[in-house]
Design a protein around this nucleic acid. Structure first.
Lengths: 220, 220
DNA sequence: CCCTTTCTGTGTATAAATTACATAGAAATA
DNA sequence: TATTTCTATGTAATTTATACACAGAAAGGG
């Protein structure tokens, strides 16, 4: 007989408890491709597998606070905008113990978090989104879901967080969109649409070193 | 010093555990208004407050399975389509113990679950969405978030789950949309749009008792 | 039974948004 | 300085969304 009934909604004091984990898809845009920050596990289970950065929610912390703590410890990333994606509760998703995970995504400027140069056998690395290996746990699924949500948000709101440097050209912005959405956009129409949203301000500076002398923009 | 670090991602075996609850916004459409199923608590905390039906996730069950169990016990509702909404982790959201809640919503035909007639001081009742009282815990917030998500989904996909009886007129469907979206729709344009989606099939039957003799449709 | 009321069902003209598309000028490179 | 490669820009065509009016069907009342 279940403990749950009409006169005992919500939870009772002796209810079952389990570990809650937070996992974060940290997206960055670099070398003209969308990248994802992964860490390599050094312990079982899934030793030597790449996974999303994450960890247990701690006592006295909310889920976003726990994410911030995890990312801060792993990467120095702090104070970023997080978007909750979904909650995963399959019983066997962690081979050793019951763990329910809540996933978030974040958009950061990779330039701000130089974890890349740590050579290619590091325990933390940016992966091109097309080159993500088989991840530990169900993290490929989490990543797919986060990417879908990112695409949806981008398509609807045309917001791109902190994926680009402070100053950028419209071409760079367009390439960001094309990469994330996975489709090619018309240059003139894109420019028209994005400018009439009034979220960008031109700086009257031109980007040096590139033919045509494109104007640099910044976020309003 | 936090237990979380780059070499200890995901969770360790002795990580902090807490109770996970599921809460469900069960929406129904009746008497031409959107309704929400609430239950009245008979125990502290929030004794005599109305809250969303919910309960603790049980060992060996996923979150959706736990929802189904809760709803089945409370209302006889079974096998319904659930949509995950969000996860709530504020430390003080439950006054007695730490509880993280995951919310879902469901769309049901109230005709199938006759909990309404149980007179008006029952412990389970349908409320008009405009007449929802102050709920226990943070459930007003959960309800607001679920309703937003429902509206978004309705606007984008024009799906309405099991909110209507098997056979319904286009007018009834339109009123459902108008009620949920909170805006008035043009009759001809609505009809045109919804029909060209190809999700409805006409039955060649007319609804009796209503002037004009409107045709009955069903879902494909 | 008929008149009135209230609902259903339908099409078109207009406005708005999206798409497709080509050329002249600026900066870099050789 | 000639060439290459990029930037910047407007308009026509198409598609989509919006506004809107009248004839027919069923119910209700006298």
């Amino acid at each position: 007989m279940s403990k749950i009934g009409p006169l005992d909604t919500a939870v009772s004091l002796d209810s079952y408890e389990c570990t809650i984990a937070v996992e974060c898809c940290v997206f960055g845009f670099q070398d003209n491709v969308l990248k994802i920050l992964l860490v390599k596990r050094s312990i079982e289970p899934f030793k030597d597998y790449w996974v999303l950065p994450g960890g247990a929610m701690n006592e006295g912390k909310t889920l976003p606070e726990s994410i911030e703590e995890v990312l801060s410890n792993l990467t120095g990333i702090r104070k970023i905008a997080l978007e909750q994606v979904a909650c995963y509760s399959n019983v066997e998703r962690h081979p050793i113990k019951r763990v329910v995970s809540v996933s978030y995504y974040a958009l950061v400027k990779p330039e701000d978090y130089p974890v890349i140069p740590k050579n290619y056998i590091s325990d933390i690395m940016w992966f091109e989104i097309g080159d993500v290996p088989e991840l530990g746990f169900d993290h490929n699924r989490l990543l797919t879901d986060s990417l879908s949500k990112l695409r949806d948000n981008l398509r609807q709101n045309l917001v791109f967080g902190e994926l680009l440097p402070d100053l950028f050209t419209l071409k760079e912005l367009q390439e960001l969109y094309e990469n994330i959405l996975g489709e090619r956009l018309d240059r003139r129409n894109f420019r028209k649409k994005i400018l009439q949203m009034g979220l960008l301000v031109p700086t009257n500076e031109k980007k040096a070193g590139v033919k045509g002398g494109p104007e640099l923009y910044k976020k309003k």
